[in-house]
Write a protein that binds this DNA or RNA. Structure first.
Lengths: 193, 193
DNA sequence: CTTCAATATCTCAGTACTGTAATTCTCAAC
DNA sequence: GTTGAGAATTACAGTACTGAGATATTGAAG
């Protein structure tokens, strides 16, 4: 499983725009080995955007698999771990706050907190000022667990991204933060123009 | 839903390592507003790695939501679209090849091709040389659909990543490709050291 | 020809959620 | 004090897969 397997195949690649578009990282735009003259065409804005989307999806998945494997050793999913971590570093949080921090659906928070409560790691507490709302808070057992596994997890992630030097990581952080916030602020167009 | 909602809260952030670790992009390491002296400490290698992981996950999710919304207009999931796209740009492919290209499980390919076949967009073809294997290929209807929706999809993605200039996009591509391939090549450590 | 490890696909139960609707509660306006 | 829009959580059905095992086939070795 080294990656693309450059076996070329008899792949009669149609002369369309460079391939690239899928979720989990698809094809990957080849150099176009059959163009009229030997002149390389500059990549269009859309070709670049598609390629960015592909490598973004692929790299996220590749790193996520390491992160998942790490937390799975303790019987946790990444979303569960995310909740434990955010409660550990911020203290008790309203469920809605948790939802916004880890970016799951409203039903997802209920489900995840239920499961963590079932494991004895998190408990719900009532909110004094608003009886609709509830806090999620770590139990002593939950706090102890996070204290134990978080450092290992951090090392795991550091290893997973170690293909980039620290300088490169800082560059990537800057670019990705900008990309993430701008994409999140754009309205999701549902096609009803 | 502008993003983090800087309401600060009474958040008595414990003096641990900077927060950050979840899947779908968690907390997001604040400046540490209560340190001994007014001297900023350089971020450790692990802090940087964790932050990279957070912004990677968040930006991927933010862009994915745009991509999903676009293909959902045609009743497709991103994984389904990925298959259509790869078959469109590469021609008929063995199911195993499709699996490696779009990075789903073996059962996932069967499931997805079944669904696309049910919609009349893809068909299975037997492989002459190996009777265990099967090709997936676009039907005329499938080919027509991709030809119609791919350009729109490309524009959709271009818009989603337009927060970055073309130069920045090219930088991000370089960094993310390096990150993705190195992370994919690292063995997944299941903890049995 | 047999054996058998390896490969390709499929089956199917299980999982981790999402999305919609229901419920409960708040707050501002009347 | 009522009313009602809106917010916070929950309930629940549905979805898009994953992962492990089953089945069929290949190809190399004996």
């Amino acid at each position: 499983m080294s990656e693309e397997s450059r076996t070329a195949r008899k792949g009669r690649s149609r002369g369309r725009t460079s391939s690239a578009a899928a979720v989990k990282a698809p094809s990957g735009a080849r150099p176009a080995e059959g163009r009229p003259a030997g002149r390389a065409r500059a990549a269009s804005a859309e070709d670049t955007a598609l390629k960015l989307w592909v490598v973004l999806a692929r790299s996220q998945l590749a790193v996520a698999r390491h992160a998942e494997a790490d937390v799975a050793r303790h019987g946790l999913t990444l979303a569960e771990f995310a909740i434990l971590e955010v409660l550990y570093h911020r203290g008790p949080l309203l469920l809605g706050e948790v939802q916004r921090k880890i970016l799951v659906s409203s039903g997802g928070v209920t489900y995840l907190v239920d499961r963590l409560a079932g494991k004895g790691l998190v408990e719900r507490r009532e909110c004094a000022h608003d009886r609709r709302a509830r806090y999620a808070a770590l139990t002593p057992a939950g706090e102890k667990l996070v204290a134990r596994i978080f450092p290992e997890h951090a090392r795991s992630i550091a290893r997973a991204v170690s293909g980039l030097s620290k300088t490169e990581q800082l560059q990537a952080i800057t670019l990705l933060r900008k990309l993430g916030t701008s994409a999140a602020d754009l309205p999701i167009s549902d096609g009803t123009s």
